Computed example of a mutant assay.
Amino acid sequence: MTRFLRKVPLDSGKPTAMPCDATLLLLDKHHVEALLSKDAVLAAVQESFELHSDRLGRVFPVVREALPTGGVFGIKSGDVPSQGLLGFKAAGFWPANRAVGGEPHQATVVLIDPGTGRPTCIIDGNAITTARTGAAGALGLRLLARPDTASACVFGTGVQARVQLDFALDTLPGITQVRYVTRDGRRDPAFEAVFAGRCAISLAADSNAAVASSHLIITATPGREVLFDVSAVQPGTHLNCVGADTRGKRELPDGLLARARIVVDDLAQARQIGECQWLPEAACIELGDLLCGKAALQREPADITVFDMTGLALQDLTVARQLQRAALATGQGTRLPWAW
């Protein structure tokens, strides 16, 4: 019996491995954390928004479903045909993991050869998700937040709250005062310790008062209930909203979106699973269109702006590809025979 051998021109720029000697690259969390850099992630995420705006990158319909176990499982996938980039991220939220000392957010990214459908790289996606969402938030701040932003209020103290604040302090170095809000109203010394040398950080005694006195609001919670009153949001405030990424989830109060100028990562996704599901008729601008100059948003001093982040598959794929290239260049990762 004759085996199928894929013929690939040597100058095509594509892998020349035949089915009998194909390999699969595995990158675990330690590899990913060693290879990630803020600048590279920012560049990859910006590229993903620009590809999306130019319709060179496709975002396929999101799968996001509740499980009988209490978890939420999702798949985000897409491709960039002109670059031979194809893949998906299987991810979700399993709150019961906390009870055994585990991270509730779980994600795995798979890159696939678009010519054959064979996987080329499997990557622990937790750090990718954290970093690329933080980078997306930073791009939103560059375009939307007041340049004189000096105070911030953060809802949540988990991994996403940390990375959002980390990128915010890099992007808006004028931030000197940070207040944070926890679910149980208790201090989180570990969260404070991460940022103690970069700003004055303290637990907010009253969430509405903290919102009212802050130029920037970051919401990074599981997103099942409104976090503050609409009257607390003052003119000139910017909000980066991370938690609403599933039908029925929300963090913002009724009436806020109607007062705000709204930017989204993807219009269809935002109206389906983001904060905009609660006001789907609201006028929105996609961030990629702002980055590419196809749209403009001239912020007035009294404007309230909202960046509704639901997460693009293209963000995961461009960052994963950067990690794959870095691993191959440095010899990191585990290579497995993957004959077919």
Results as ranks from 00 to 15, higher is better:
residue 243 G to H: 10
residue 6 R to S: 11
residue 141 L to W: 06
residue 188 D to Q: 07
residue 110 V to K: 06
residue 175 I to M: 09
residue 230 V to I: 03
residue 275 E to F: 00
residue 4 F to L: 14
residue 69 T to Y: 01
residue 83 Q to L: 15
residue 202 S to R: 13
residue 164 Q to D: 12
residue 259 R to S: 06
residue 282 A to Q: 15
residue 221 T to S: 08
residue 215 H to W: 11
residue 159 V to I: 15
residue 207 S to G: 02
residue 89 K to D: 06
residue 171 T to E: 15
residue 84 G to A: 07
residue 333 G to M: 04
residue 285 I to A: 08
residue 253 P to M: 09
residue 257 L to A: 05
residue 196 A to R: 11
residue 203 L to D: 09
residue 33 E to G: 05
residue 227 L to F: 12
residue 34 A to H: 12
residue 138 A to N: 06
residue 298 Q to S: 14
residue 152 A to T: 01
residue 167 F to L: 06
residue 329 A to I: 00
residue 87 G to M: 10
residue 47 E to Q: 15
residue 43 A to C: 05
residue 183 R to W: 08
residue 33 E to Y: 09
residue 241 C to Y: 07
residue 30 H to L: 11
residue 142 R to N: 10
residue 199 C to Q: 11
residue 335 R to Q: 14
residue 316 D to I: 05
residue 223 G to C: 08
residue 46 Q to F: 03
residue 167 F to P: 00
residue 303 D to E: 03
residue 238 H to Y: 12
residue 86 L to P: 02
residue 231 S to Y: 05
residue 233 V to T: 12
residue 109 V to Q: 00
residue 294 K to T: 05
residue 194 V to R: 12
residue 139 L to T: 05
residue 37 S to N: 08
residue 132 R to E: 08
residue 117 G to Y: 11
residue 40 A to L: 04
residue 66 A to K: 15
residue 264 V to H: 06
residue 90 A to W: 04
residue 123 I to F: 11
residue 129 T to R: 04
residue 314 L to K: 07
residue 188 D to L: 06
residue 93 F to C: 01
residue 83 Q to W: 03
residue 316 D to Q: 03
residue 157 T to V: 14
residue 121 C to A: 13
residue 215 H to K: 13
residue 156 G to P: 09
residue 33 E to H: 09
residue 188 D to H: 13
residue 26 L to N: 03
residue 185 G to L: 03
residue 333 G to H: 03
residue 119 P to L: 02
residue 279 L to Y: 14
residue 101 G to P: 03
residue 40 A to D: 13
residue 227 L to H: 08
residue 300 E to G: 13
residue 98 R to C: 01
residue 235 P to I: 12
residue 113 D to R: 07
residue 39 D to F: 07
residue 104 P to M: 02
residue 11 D to L: 12
residue 337 P to C: 03
residue 319 V to H: 08
residue 251 E to I: 01
residue 294 K to D: 10
residue 177 Q to A: 13
residue 202 S to I: 08
residue 112 I to V: 15
residue 148 D to P: 01
residue 133 T to D: 02
residue 219 T to L: 02
residue 224 R to K: 14
residue 257 L to S: 06
residue 302 A to V: 14
residue 79 D to H: 07
residue 135 A to W: 09
residue 288 G to V: 04
residue 269 Q to I: 02
residue 174 G to N: 08
